[in-house]
Computed example of a mutant assay.
Amino acid sequence: MKTKLSCPCGEWIEGVDEDDLVARTQAHLAAAHPDLDYSRDEILFLAY
């Protein structure tokens, strides 16, 4: 299960499970990078 992701902007995002990680990453993208939109699969591809 992937629960961590490092955004290229330097933000570390961690979730308790993959669903939480995706939700937290999408919230970060909406707040910090509104021009970017990644799918669940794309987020999990970048996660570890």
Rank of each mutant, 00 (worst) to 15 (best):
W12V: 15
V16C: 05
L46F: 14
K2Q: 10
A30R: 14
L21Y: 01
A32C: 14
H28G: 15
W12N: 11
V22I: 13
A27N: 15
G10H: 03
L21E: 00
Y48D: 15
D35Q: 11
I13L: 15
R24Y: 06
V16Y: 10
E11V: 11
F45W: 06
A47L: 04
G15H: 01
A47D: 10
V16H: 11
V16M: 07
C7Q: 06
L44R: 14
L44T: 00
C9M: 02
L46C: 07
I43E: 00
D20G: 07
L46I: 06
K4A: 12
D19G: 01
M1Q: 10
A23M: 05
K2W: 03
W12T: 15
L36S: 03
E18L: 07
L29S: 13
H28D: 09
D35F: 12
H33I: 04
C7P: 06
E42M: 08
F45L: 11
R40A: 08
E18T: 02
T3Q: 11
E18H: 12
Y48C: 14
D17V: 01
P8K: 03
E18W: 05
S6D: 12
P8I: 02
S6K: 11
A27Y: 09
Y48H: 11
D35W: 13
F45D: 14
D37A: 12
Y38E: 15
